[in-house]
């Protein structure tokens, strides 16, 4: 479970997150939507401490990740992250990409790590690409490998930062399909996306952000069909 209290984040003078309070429950799929510059990606990056937090607290399973006494690396290993630009390691094969962190961070032996990696590749439908280099994959395949790589660390929660925004339209579906499967298996997920169809179908809760605030949150059906806030209505009228 994640609890976010009074989270603020500024880049210099520019306050990007202004007092965010949010609870994410186990096995919940929370979809974050909003215009660009609303702070939704920054929120995700704060949960993984890829950004230093200006003030406030983030508790993951009761542990305050902003507390310097806690080992950031250990906490990060519990949180999987999938990036818009995939960020696969180009000098390593697909299976090496997946095995690297389990072997080097968790200290798992090569063979079990490889077996686990192949199993994850099968799950995302790319077992035959195990020995390929990322450069030879399509965008959709790269993102599925990136998901498998994050899952190899057996995270308690998965963060998706616009995972389909850099993809050609015809391969968006294959990535969303993998994410849907994860959601069905009960993975706790926070997804920043512009895919309103995915939000509606898979999200347990949708959060609308604008100007550094959470403007409105609700069940997808409620939020999409009956938004209470004017800004939510204005945004939805443009994207739906």
């Amino acid at each position: 479970m994640i609890k976010i209290h009074n989270l603020k984040k500024s880049f210099g003078e520019n306050e990007v997150l202004k007092d965010i309070n949010l609870v994410i429950n186990p096995q919940e799929v929370v979809v974050v939507i909003g215009p660009s510059g609303s702070g939704k990606s920054t929120l995700l990056r704060c949960i993984n401490l890829l950004e230093t937090i200006t003030s406030g607290h983030i508790l993951i399973e009761g542990k305050d990740i902003t507390d310097k006494m806690n080992d950031i690396n250990k906490m990060r290993a519990e949180v999987g992250m999938v990036f818009q630009q995939f960020n696969l390691f180009p000098h390593k094969t697909v299976i090496e990409n997946i095995m690297l962190a389990p072997v080097k961070v968790r200290g798992i032996a090569e063979e079990p790590a490889r077996r686990k990696g192949l199993e994850l590749l099968r799950k995302v439908g790319l077992e035959e690409k195990a020995l390929a280099y990322p450069d030879s994959l399509s965008g959709g395949q790269k993102q599925r490998v990136a998901i498998a790589r994050a899952l190899a660390m057996e995270p308690k929660i998965m963060l998706f930062d616009e995972p389909t925004s850099a993809l050609d339209p015809e391969v968006v579906g294959e990535v969303l399909e993998v994410m849907k499967q994860l959601a069905r298996e009960g993975m706790t997920m926070v997804v920043v996306t512009h895919e309103m169809g995915f939000a509606r179908e898979v999200g347990d809760r949708v959060i609308f952000m604008d100007g550094g605030y959470i403007v409105e949150e609700n069940e997808p059906k409620q939020l999409f069909e009956n938004p209470h806030q004017e800004r939510t209505q204005a945004f939805l009228s443009k994207v739906l």
């Binding site: 690396n73 992250m81 696969l88 994050a150």
Partner: peptide, 18 residues
Amino acid sequence: IDRGQMEAARSLGMNQRQ
């Protein structure tokens, strides 16, 4: 080297040195 590479490595739990 693209910043995303370091971010991906860190998000997998590697420390700076790893």
